[in-house]
Computed example of a mutant assay.
Amino acid sequence: MTALVPPAESPETAETLRTALAGLLDGLPPRTAAQAVERLIANYRGRTPTDAPVLRDRSDVIAYAAYRMPATFEAVVTALDAFADAVPGWVPGSHVDVGGGTGAATWAVAATWAGERPVTVLDWAEPALALGREIAAAHPYLKGAEWKRARIGAALDLGGTGADTLVTVSYVLNELTEADRASVVDAAAAAGQAVLIVEPGTPDGYARVIEARDRLVGAGFHVAAPCPHSAACPIAPGEDWCHFSARVSRSSLHRQVKGGSLAYEDEKFAYVAATRFPPAPAPSRIVRRPQIRKGQVLLDLCETEPSLHRTTVTKRHGPLYRAARDADWGDAWPPADGE
C-alpha cells in the first residue's frame, strides 16, 4: 500500500544541505565516488553489524552521504511534517538522533522547527560522525550539535534527556538484530517525549515499524502519525503494507550510479511518530492513490475506528470535491480547513 506524500522541507535548509554535499564531492574523482556507492549499497544497509561499519574512511563517507543523505532527509522531513500537524504548538526542546551517521535527521528537524536546541547524534562509525560534524557547521541551528560514538543496540544509553526531547531513529532498525531493535526502541521511549521511527518502505521495513509501534504504544505512547489511531493496524499481516514516498532531486552522483535520466527519484519509506502526551492525529489518512473519475474521486482511507474504508467524493460535495481532486496519497482527510 504505497502512499505519496509531497516533500515539505524548508527550502533554505534543503538547499544548504545540497550545497554542503556538493562541496564535499569537489576533488573526489567521480569514478571513486561511484564505485564506493555501489559497494556501500550492496553491503552497508542490513548486512553489517553496527560495531563493524563499512564506512571505512572519508572517501567512503563522502560518497555515501552524497548519495543517501538527501533521500533520508526528504523521508524524515516528510514524516515530521505529518507529525507536526498532529502536535500543533509543540516544539522539541532537544533532539537525540540514534544511529544518525552524518546527521540527515538533524537537518530534517531543523527544517521542521526553527531555532536552536541541544542536538546529539549517536553512531558507531567515527568517520560518519566526523563528516556530519563538518557538514553541520553550514547550518546555524546545528553548529553546536554533539557527535558521539556509541554502540546502537542493547548497550545504548540515552540518559540525560529532557521532558521535551524528540528521539529519531531513521534507517537504523534494519541493521539490528531483533533483540537490539527492541532495546533501541525501549531506550528511545524511556528518553523521549516524542519518538520518530523511519524505515525503508518495504514489507520488511513496514514490519519493523509495526513492531516498534507496538512497543511504543505498550510503553504508554500515543500514535500521532501516520495512523489516525493507536489501535492495531487494520492491514492484515502479509497481505499488504503501508508506506510512503518522498520526491528526491537527483544529484550528478545519483545519475552516475543509477544511470537514470530523470532529475528526481522517489524514496519509499515507512514510519511511525508517537508521543507521551495526547496528540491530535488526522481523522483519517489516504492510503492509496486517489482514483479520479468523471465527476467523482475515490479515496481509500485508514480511519479512526480503526478500519480501511473507501469513500466517494462527488461534485455535489463542492469544495470538498475540489480538495479530493488535489489530494495525494498519505494526506490527512478531510483537509483541516474543510476545503
Rank of each mutant, 00 (worst) to 15 (best):
Q35W: 13
A79V: 07
F73A: 02
A219L: 09
D51L: 12
N174M: 15
A110Y: 02
P283A: 08
R213G: 06
A65S: 13
A63I: 10
N43W: 14
F244V: 03
A128S: 11
E12A: 14
H317P: 14
T2A: 15
I235M: 10
V167K: 03
A336F: 06
R18T: 08
A212Q: 09
T177G: 15
S307E: 08
E126Y: 13
R58Y: 05
R316T: 11
K268G: 10
P279Q: 10
S245H: 10
A137E: 15
A212I: 03
V109W: 01
R208P: 02
D300W: 12
R133H: 15
L122H: 03
R18V: 05
V257N: 04
G153C: 03
E9M: 08
A108G: 09
P226I: 00
P279D: 09
V195L: 07
P234T: 13
R56M: 07
T275R: 07
P306Y: 09
R325F: 08
V313C: 07
D51F: 12
E265W: 00
A128P: 12
V87F: 14
V91W: 07
G46P: 02
V217G: 08
I210H: 05
S307K: 14
A332Y: 03
I41R: 13
P200V: 03
A187W: 06
L55F: 03
I62D: 02
G259K: 01
A194K: 11
V54P: 11
G159M: 15
A114C: 10
Q291E: 15
V185P: 08
E134Y: 07
L299G: 09
P92H: 04
A79Y: 00
D186S: 15
A71I: 00
G295N: 09
P234D: 14
A282Q: 07
A145M: 05
W90K: 11
P319K: 15
T304M: 10
T72Q: 08
C233E: 04
R208M: 09
T32V: 13
V109L: 02
L308E: 05
A66H: 08
R31P: 01
E211W: 05
D300K: 11
D337P: 09
T112Y: 02
R56D: 13
P335A: 03
I286E: 00
L80W: 06
V109D: 04
A79L: 06
A154T: 14
R208D: 02
A191G: 09
R215D: 01
L129Y: 04
S10W: 06
T72S: 09
T78N: 01
K143S: 12
W113C: 05
D85K: 13
P53G: 06
V297Y: 06
R31K: 15
P319G: 08
A246H: 01
S94A: 13
A273K: 03
W333N: 02
C233Q: 00
D57K: 08
P92K: 05
A336K: 14
S251G: 12
A34H: 07
A104I: 01
A36D: 11
